[in-house]
């Protein structure tokens, strides 16, 4: 699976919609949607910072690593 984005999980915990988050962090809805769907290739540290600030969480709450099933011993 690799890097997994759990943005929707944190948004649900904080009861925040994508629109609200977009307004608070200053990132477009489409970019947040790309991030939420796991289609982003990279995320800037500054972006991660503002998202964590808005959702009052740690980076590890949003980004997780899940090893591929093929790599499991």
């Amino acid at each position: 699976m690799g890097i997994v984005i759990n943005l929707d999980v944190m948004m649900a915990k904080r009861k925040m919609s994508l629109n609200t988050l977009s307004e608070q962090v200053g990132i477009t809805l489409s970019n947040l949607s790309i991030l939420k769907q796991g289609k982003a290739k990279a995320i800037r540290l500054s972006t991660l910072e503002v998202i964590c600030k808005a959702l009052e969480c740690q980076p590890g709450d949003i980004i997780a690593y899940e090893p591929d099933e093929d790599n499991l011993i």
Binding site: L32, I34, L35, A40, K41, I43, R44
Partner: peptide, 8 residues
């Protein structure tokens, strides 16, 4: 360019 567009 594609990588830049998918960098949030």
């Amino acid at each position: 360019e594609e990588e830049k567009q998918l960098t949030i």
